[in-house]
């Protein structure tokens, strides 16, 4: 079985005068469909850089990135944009919903971008499934933090991507809501056979994931 996401010996460094600052060192990782992985580590350890490289947002200095068997490391920005739209679902910290779109439109926008028609029913089903049936016509400002993050999960799933990337999805939530959100994400990942990587520093939700990686000073290690 092909891994949905595979990173091999990924290095990312920045040149600061004569000094070379290494953010990621020889990072390798593989996530299979239906696997929910978490990357934990203190801030500044390279979590964000790792997620950016995995999400076709940042080019690594060395190493390769594969998405569903296809190498995407050296593709153009334009091709990356298309890949992000069709094959990757993002869940950002603070949800990052578009303030002037209703809950329904947040999802419909994704299908408009992907030029897929008649997706209203799918959007409605996804939202109902995540317990947002009564919020369809509301704007993000009217929602609670937990509800917003659930909308973000639905948005990430909207175009049926193979990979879900979550950037600190529990950062702005209390522990109870945070757990709820991660549980929902796990259930969606397992039910739809998606591969998912969640970057977090919230150790309390690690029991919900299948694999845990620890990142420290740019070095990624699998935790047992």
């Amino acid at each position: 079985m092909t891994e949905t996401l595979k990173l091999t010996n990924v290095v990312k460094y920045y040149q600061d005068g004569d000094a070379r600052i290494e953010v990621l060192r020889e990072v390798s990782l593989a996530v299979k469909p239906g696997e929910f992985a978490a990357v934990v580590g203190p801030s500044g350890a390279g979590k964000s850089t790792f997620l950016s490289i995995a999400g076709a947002l940042l080019r690594p200095s060395e190493g390769q990135v594969y998405l569903a068997g296809q190498e995407i490391t050296q593709l153009s920005q334009k091709q990356w944009t298309k890949i992000r739209l069709e094959q990757i679902g993002f869940i950002f910290q603070n949800s990052e919903l578009i303030p002037y779109l209703t809950v329904m439109d947040q999802l419909c926008y994704m299908s408009v971008l992907a030029r897929r028609k008649g997706q209203e029913k799918r959007a409605q089903e996804l939202l109902t499934h995540l317990g947002l049936a009564k919020r369809l016509q509301q704007y993000p400002a009217a929602l609670s933090g937990g509800e917003r993050q659930r909308v973000a999960i639905a948005r990430a799933l909207m175009n049926d991507p193979q990979l879900i990337l979550a950037d600190e999805p529990t950062a702005s939530l209390d522990s109870k809501r945070g757990r709820e959100v991660v549980t929902m994400l796990r259930d969606e990942v397992h039910a739809n056979q998606k591969a998912a990587v969640m970057v977090t520093h919230d150790e309390r939700v690690l029991d919900l994931v299948d694999t845990v990686y620890q990142i420290e000073d740019g070095v990624l290690k699998k935790k047992d």
Binding site: T81, I83, R84, L85, I98, M110, A114
Partner: peptide, 16 residues
């Protein structure tokens, strides 16, 4: 600007 960053990350083209 931040919103545009998010829209682009989600897969929105600059031309759009």
């Amino acid at each position: 600007i931040r919103e545009f960053g998010v829209l682009k990350a989600l897969g929105t083209k600059t031309s759009y």
